[in-house]
Amino acid sequence: MAAASRGWRRLARPLAVTLLLVVCYGAIITPFASYMRNKPFVEKLGTLPRVEVLRAIAADQKQVVAEGLILDVLMYFGGLLGKEKGKVVVPPDFQAMSRLLHGAVQLDPYNMDAYYFAQAILVWDVDQVKLANNLLDYGMKYRSWDWYLPFFAGFNYGYFLKDYPQAAKYYMKAGELSGNELFINLAGRYLNESGQNDLAIAYLKTMAKGAKNKVMWESLTTRLKALEAMRAIGTARDAFHNATGRLPSSVQQLLYAGYLQEIPKDPYGGTFYLAADGTVKTTSNLAYPVKKKQ
C-alpha cells in the first residue's frame, strides 16, 4: 500500500506536466482548426507542381493521386455549397479548380470523375465551355467506349455554343457507342433550336440519374427544377400566343389570364420574366447570387 502510494507520488510530476500539456493542446486546437478551415483554397492545396514532376513523384500511384486531386476539388466546392443554406457566399476559385482537374486527367486520362465534374460544374458556372470541350476530346481518345463524353460534348456544342452541326456529330457518336436511338434522335432534334429547353431537361435528368454524390445531385436537380419551371412558363406563353395572336407582356399576365396555375419559384432565388422577344428568363441567371467575401 505504502509502496503503491510512493509510486503514485513519484508519478505526480510527470502527470501534472502531461495534464498541463493536454490543457495547452485544448487551448490551441480550436483557433488552429478555425485557421485551417478558413485558409484559402489555393493555400490549402498549395500550388500544383508541374505535371511532369507530379507524374515522376507519383511513381506507380498516379491513379490515386489523380483521384485525390478531384476529391479535393469536389470537397472544396461542396464546402462552399454547404455554407449559408446552400448559397455560395465566397466566389469559388474556378481557375484553381480547372487547373487541378486538368492536372488530374494528365495523371490518369481514364478518370471519369474529372470529366464529369468539369461538365457538371465548370461548364455551367463559368464560361469555360470551349475548355471543357477540349477536355472531353482528350478524354474520348482514352475512354473510347464511353458514350457519356460525346454526349456531354454534343450538349455543349448545341446548348451553349449554338454550333448545331458539331452538336449533331457528337450526338451521333454517342448514339453509335451506346446503341441508344435516343441520341441519334437528339442529334436530329438539335438542329431545331425550339427544342432546346426540352433537351436541356432530358440532359440534366440523365446527368442527375447517375449522380452518386449528394452535392452533385443537389446541384443538378436544382438546375433541373429551374429549367422545368421555365418550360412551364414557355408552354403557357405559347398557349397565350396561339389564343390571342400576340405575346404576353409579363409572367403575371399569364397567371391572370389563367394560363398558369401559379408563378413558379426560381430555386436560385431569382424572379422569372419575359424578355421583349418572349423568351423566358430569370433574374438569377440560373446561378446562386455571388457576394464578395467580407
Partner: peptide
C-alpha cells in the same frame, strides 16, 4: 463512395 461516377473503379484503384 466519395467518387462521383466511378465508385467500383475507385475501389479497384485503392
Amino acid at each position: 463512395q466519395l467518387s462521383m461516377r466511378q465508385v467500383t473503379e475507385l475501389s479497384v484503384t485503392l
